[in-house]
């Protein structure tokens, strides 16, 4: 999940475009990590030092690691340690953006350091998928600390993203949320959560994008069945909300249930309380996830 939010951060900082990210998520599948980016991320080398090694390599037939050791930037042990680490998704994204010429090593260095500082993330946070770290990231990204139901919203949005990665794909970029009171929906599915607290949750997109989202979740070819997309997106929302309800029940003792989903087409819907609309850009288009707590 850190890779997607790192992408969102780069987009927000206008260091990349949405197209750059879509391309990078596609290319990332074949990207191999390079020592330079790993060393920058670990804070062992600066971008200037990496560039120096790269330039020196053009006249000397030596591997990057050997040259970096010779030049005194890193030790052999540090190189061995870096090479033995499993590359994380956000680093693979960073490496791909560097490979594609979207970011220079210096821009990557600045961005990764700012990203960690702004979100108070440590390297160990970024290597794992601890709930606490993910919640912190989500809260910071969406400024949820100012919302009235901050904790619930954070838990919900974190759960939602985990399940998008689990069931749809990881090739998306979250955009900044907008607060809305109404929504002009082309195709929308809604489910209410009721109990200890009440919420309205929706997934909406333009028809063709909505259809593609449904296909991703179905995994099999149900596309020829009428109404397939509503049924499928509805079931995805149901699964996310159900897992959220169980989580809240187990961790906080909240007792929640849900109403059957409602399909809405070409209609303006209103929310009693301000709703968070979270746009998520996939390679096939933008899907909006809406949550409003009442």
């Amino acid at each position: 999940m850190f890779a997607q939010f790192f992408g969102g951060y780069l987009l927000h900082k206008k260091l990349v475009t949405s197209e750059d990210l879509t391309q990078a998520f596609e290319d990332k599948k074949h990207t191999r990590m390079r020592l330079g980016v790993l060393a920058i991320n670990a804070g062992l080398m600066t971008a200037d030092q990496v560039e120096h090694v790269n330039i020196t390599q053009q006249s000397v037939d030596k591997r990057f690691g050997d040259l970096a050791v010779e030049l005194g930037y890193v030790t052999e042990e540090q190189v061995d340690k870096l090479l033995s680490q499993q590359p994380t998704e956000y680093l693979l994204l960073g490496q791909t953006l560097v490979n594609n010429g979207v970011l220079s090593n210096a821009q990557f260095e600045q961005a990764i350091n700012d990203y960690k500082t702004d979100n108070e993330l440590t390297d160990s946070d970024l290597e794992g998928s601890k709930n606490e770290s993910l919640n912190k990231l989500v809260t910071e990204f969406y400024h949820l600390e100012e919302a009235s139901n901050a904790r619930m919203l954070t838990d919900y949005v974190t759960m939602m993203f985990k399940n998008i990665i689990r069931f749809i794909d990881g090739d998306f970029t979250p955009l900044e949320a907008i607060v809305i009171r109404e929504f002009d929906a082309e195709t929308l599915i809604e489910q209410r959560i009721t109990g200890t607290y009440d919420a309205v949750t929706c997934i909406t997109a333009e028809k063709d994008v909505y259809f593609e989202f449904a296909k991703r979740f179905a995994g099999e070819n149900f596309g020829d069945i009428t109404g397939f997309e509503n049924e499928t997106v509805g079931e995805f929302l149901n699964v996310v909300n159900g897992l959220f309800a169980v989580n809240q029940s187990n961790e906080g003792g909240a007792e929640l249930t849900m109403t059957p989903q409602q399909f809405i087409q070409d209609k303006k819907i209103s929310f009693e309380k301000p709703a968070f609309c979270i746009p998520v850009v996939f390679s096939f288009g933008e899907v909006d996830f809406i949550v409003s707590t009442e």
Partner: peptide
């Protein structure tokens, strides 16, 4: 076989 496996349910 449900999405809501809360303690109450």
């Amino acid at each position: 076989a449900s999405s809501v496996g809360t303690q109450g349910h």
